[in-house]
Design a protein around this nucleic acid. Structure first.
Lengths: 289, 289
DNA sequence: GCCGGAATGAAATAATAATTCCAGTATTTC
DNA sequence: GAAATACTGGAATTATTATTTCATTCCGGC
């Protein structure tokens, strides 16, 4: 009953692990059994019910509760919370930081905070892309684009900077490309030049520029291969582009970064360049699909 | 009540995702709302309870169950199972990937390696900026720019995407700005409008675009305050800009990233917006459209 | 070999969460 | 424009799951 030197309760998984290891000698047999099981099968603890875990670890449910209480928790549920937090933590370590970096507060360090916010948001975007990018899509996109006679680039508003970078990089790599800009009002003619032998890179994020969507749809209907970069499976682009990347950019103060979109674009450009140089995409059809 | 042709139920997350996408057009409003939420916050679904998810997605718990049934599951619990399975699997595959990245630095698939290179280079650039940015310069630059009647933006070639982003962001923030583009050949006139009451953001990296340097020099000589973003103290811009940032972008395969330049630009834009809103930038708030 | 205290197992209970039901409201169809 | 149908919100109900309780067993000291 009395606080038998339970110290403080572990707040995260590492602390919990350390706590278990520290007292493993002095634990009762069944508790030790659960402790070993927990460290070996953390996912089971995170997802299972007290009963199911008990069965698979060969103890009674009540033992699980006693185990949790031994560690200083008030029940199985809060112990389980730590195991779950461990799984989500991989994703959300930046969230916390971004939340503490609100734009408005703190007059003195305000500007530095803002920069810090964008740096953090950019890093987060990059990390998310590291984890979620689909290699197969990347390979196929580069394959399709490397085969194209002319690559049309279609992006407006917030995505326009990416388009201009792509045009620059592809130009440097001597890949023929054509930006479709809205300024001059020549878009319809430009678009009419595109054939199924060409390809389009289209970039648009919510709220989608209507002109971009319509142009993309038109091109798609005429059989021009489309590679889209967009932000969700619900994007209109996702519905009619054969190949599309989902890019989740973090934001700060309502302004989303372009960090991972940019990195992806650079990779596309260089990948296309490589494919052309090594002949992977030239006239040879029937490679990888 | 009868089995209304619900097809087969998704066994893993990818199938589930595909299933959602396939019918997204025909889903009822609230169901679609949950569908979007689920694809955006899969972790919430994996760990939350029906009630907690319902609150955070802004629907009723019963809607969640209807959503699950729409997809062919017999209830929320079995739907949740798919989200949990994904989390377990993703976890192991993420660790796998990290390992292969460390090990097979050269042998890995070409295109993925390229993307990875740009992601890494971008991260590195951000880290460098975190460490080296000069707060005082940032504060002063934002102060100067917030006072300007019109902000002129001057950047070409590789830096042009940054300029176009700045123009977009400042526009959003209702800060009057004017890009100086080379295309139309109107630059001289545009530049002639600038007065010491305005300010210029000029961005250029080695090899510096001659036109940018000349324009910047001209503006500087006419007393227009200059804020420069460039890559070294030896840059010509550093010599005649009162305020300048040194930005060291990492590169991959000879292509430098724009990650930290972009982050800095976003911070400048938002910082200017903040300064205007809070009146820090003198009294000229009416200057914007 | 017996006693006291901790540890354990098993079942009862309390808490929590999923599901169902129904009334009211939109939306479609004829 | 009316009827039918589908959708939604909210509370009631049922199921599941964590926790508590208590009788029993185990184990070291006298």
């Amino acid at each position: 009953m009395s606080e038998t030197a339970v110290a403080e309760l572990p707040r995260d998984f590492d602390e919990l692990r350390a706590s278990i290891l520290a007292q493993r000698e002095s634990l009762p047999k069944r508790i030790a059994q659960i402790a070993a099981y927990a460290l070996d099968n953390p996912d089971e603890i995170a997802f299972g019910t007290a009963a199911s875990i008990a069965v698979s670890a060969g103890v009674q449910p009540s033992t699980l509760i006693r185990f949790a209480q031994h560690l200083g928790f008030d029940g199985f549920t809060s112990l389980q919370g730590v195991f779950r937090a461990r799984l989500r933590e991989r994703n959300s370590s930046y969230e916390e930081r971004l939340n503490t970096l609100r734009v408005g507060n703190g007059a003195a360090a305000g500007n530095h905070r803002i920069l810090d916010g964008f740096l953090t948001a950019s890093r987060k975007s990059l990390d998310v892309m590291s984890r979620t990018i689909d290699e197969a899509t990347l390979d196929r996109a580069i394959d399709v684009l490397a085969r194209a006679e002319t690559i049309y680039i279609l992006a407006r508003r917030r995505s326009y900077p990416v388009a201009s970078y792509l045009a620059y990089a592809l130009g440097k790599l001597e890949v023929r490309n054509q930006m479709i800009e809205s300024a001059a009002g020549l878009d319809p003619e430009m678009i009419s030049f595109a054939t199924p032998k060409d390809a389009v890179i289209v970039i648009s994020f919510s709220p989608y520029a209507p002109a971009t969507i319509e142009d993309a749809r038109g091109l798609s209907e005429r059989g021009v291969p489309l590679v889209a970069i967009t932000d969700s499976a619900f994007s209109p682009l996702a519905s009619f582009a054969k190949l599309w990347f989902e890019v989740a950019e973090a934001d700060f103060g309502g302004f989303r970064t372009l960090a991972s979109t940019m990195a992806l674009s650079m990779a596309l450009a260089v990948g296309i360049g490589e494919a052309r140089r090594t002949g992977r995409g030239k006239g040879r059809r029937g490679g990888a699909i």
